[in-house]
Amino acid sequence: MSDNAKTNKNDAVDEADKAKLNDRRMFLKLGGAGIAALALGSANQVTAFTNPSSTSRQQQTTINLGSGDIGIMNFAYLLEQLEADFYTRVVANNFYAGSTPEERQILTDLRDHEIIHREFFKAALGANGIPQIPMFNFSLVDFNSRDSVLTNSQNLEDTGVSAYNGAGQAIVSPDILAIAGKIVSVEGRHAAAIRDLRIPRNGFFAPHPDDFALDPLSVLAIARPFIPTNVTINASGLPRIIVV
C-alpha cells in the first residue's frame, strides 16, 4: 500500500471518530480496497478524501449508479457496502456490553455474509461498478449499545429485503434476477434472526405474509443518512417503478 493510501486511511478514521476499529486486519481490507477503487476514479476524488485541511468542507463526490440492470446491481452493491461496513464496525468494536455468544456469532456471520455479497457485486460489476465508499456515516449509531446496534441492524436487513423484493420487477435479465433471489432470502434470514434477538420467540420475526418491498428511490431515501455527507448518489438512471 502506498504512503498516500496510508494517509487516506488515517484521515478516514478521524472522520469517523465514533467508530472504534480494533480489528486491524479487517479495517485494512475495507479501507484499502475502498480507497484504491476511488483512486481509479479520478484524482479529484482522492483529494476529497485525503486533504487534511478539507475535513470540514470536503469536496463533493458524485457516484452515478448507472441504468438498467447495471444500475440495479450498483444499487445493491451500495447497500451491501453499507451493511458490510456496519457489521465490520460492530465486530471491530468487540460488540457491545453484555453481548451473548449467540449474538456475537450471528453478528460475525452477518459481517462475513455481507462482505461476501459486497465482494461478489464488486467482482461481477467490474469496470461498471461504483467505487467503494471508504467510510459510511454511522454517527447516529451507538456501537456500545445493544439496543442501538440491533435496531440499526434490523433496519438495514429489512431495508435490504425490501430493496431486492422491490427491484425484482425492474430486472430484465433472468440470470441477474436469479442471483438477487439467492441473496434476498439470506437477508430475510438475517432480518428474522435480529428481530428475534430484539423480541424473542414472538411473531415479530416475520410480521406479514407479504414481506417488505420498496422501489429503489425509496430505499435510497432510507439509506441516505448513512451516506457520507460529501458523497452524492446519482440514481437518476435507475428504473422508476411502481412496486405492485
Binding site: G166, Q169, G181, V184, G188, F205, F212, A213, V244
Partner: peptide, 21 residues
Amino acid sequence: DDFVLTTALRFHSAEARHASE
C-alpha cells in the same frame, strides 16, 4: 408478470424468515 413476480418474492423472503426462526 410484475404482480406475480413481486408477490412471489415477498412470499419468498417471508418463508426465509420462517426458516431462520
